[in-house]
Simulated scan of single mutants.
Amino acid sequence: MSKYVLIGSEGCGSVIVELAMREVQAEFELEEIPYLEPGPDRDRLLELNPLGQVPTLIMPDGSVMTESAAIILHLADAFPDQRFVPSSSDPQRPGFLRWLLYINSEIYPTTTFADDPDRWKISETRSQEYKDAIDQYRMELWANVEQVADDPYFLGERLSAVDFYIAVMRHWRPGKKAFAKALPKLNTIADNVSRLPQFESILKRNFPDS
């Protein structure tokens, strides 16, 4: 194998990694699957990633990487000319790492908390109340990112991987309109990313309203 294989699903976290791979012009093949649907694709995914989640990245040597932040940091090492992860000597690196991991550890998991209330033993009568509470909490978490965001991108003039997350995750619960209303700075950043030629087709394919 001489190239990466990115296993992903439309509109999911794999889009974040696809943006990063396009930015570094990595040679890769995208395998889009309905990752939650039972069948051969799901079975293969579970063999590669016990959590059955996307993105799952098969490396050129056949090994497997999971977790979008880990993949982002790997690509920064594998393509040293990239600029979306500040170098170890860059004064913006500590802030970048802080918010990259904040988005991944605090905000990202809430998308799964509300998707399947039955998994958490939430009764059917309370499931909507539970989803609404999670959505509100998610927006409160995003508000912390809004407070420190620069312009035109999160770090200022420099495009970073944090911008990839913002551009993709604004389409997730509670939806793009709610995101734009509550988080105008982050929404502008997402718009700026969506207009970049190298990303426009990817985001339009996954989110037609981009």
Rank of each mutant, 00 (worst) to 15 (best):
E27A: 11
E27Y: 00
E29W: 13
L30N: 10
L30M: 15
E32K: 14
I33P: 03
I33G: 04
Y35K: 01
L36N: 12
L36K: 14
L36R: 14
P38M: 08
P38L: 09
P38H: 08
R42I: 02
N49H: 06
N49E: 03
L51D: 07
L51Q: 10
L51C: 07
G52W: 01
V54K: 02
P55C: 12
T56F: 05
L57I: 08
L57F: 09
P60N: 11
D61G: 12
V64A: 12
M65V: 09
E67A: 04
S68G: 14
A69W: 02
A69N: 11
I71P: 01
I71F: 02
H74M: 10
H74Q: 10
D77H: 15
A78Y: 10
A78V: 12
P80D: 05
P80H: 07
P80E: 06
R83W: 01
F84D: 02
F84C: 03
F84A: 03
P86H: 13
S87W: 02
S87R: 14
S88L: 13
S89H: 07
P91S: 10
P91G: 09
R93Q: 13
G95R: 15
F96A: 07
L97A: 04
R98M: 09
W99M: 09
W99A: 05
W99Q: 06
Y102T: 08
Y102F: 15
I103C: 11
I103V: 14
N104T: 11
S105Y: 11
E106V: 15
P109R: 12
T110V: 07
T110W: 05
T111A: 09
A114M: 11
D116N: 10
D116E: 06
P117G: 01
P117V: 00
D118C: 00
D118R: 00
R119H: 02
R119A: 00
W120E: 02
I122K: 01
S123P: 00
S123A: 00
S123R: 00
R126Q: 02
Q128H: 05
Q128C: 00
E129H: 12
E129N: 12
K131W: 08
K131Y: 05
K131M: 09
A133F: 13
I134L: 13
D135G: 15
Y137L: 13
Y137E: 09
R138I: 14
M139H: 13
L141H: 12
N144C: 13
A149S: 11
A149G: 07
D150C: 10
D150F: 03
D151Q: 12
Y153C: 02
F154G: 03
F154V: 04
L155K: 06
R158D: 07
R158V: 08
L159E: 01
L159N: 01
S160I: 03
S160L: 07
S160A: 08
A161D: 00
A161T: 01
D163M: 03
Y165A: 08
Y165N: 11
A167R: 02
H171F: 07
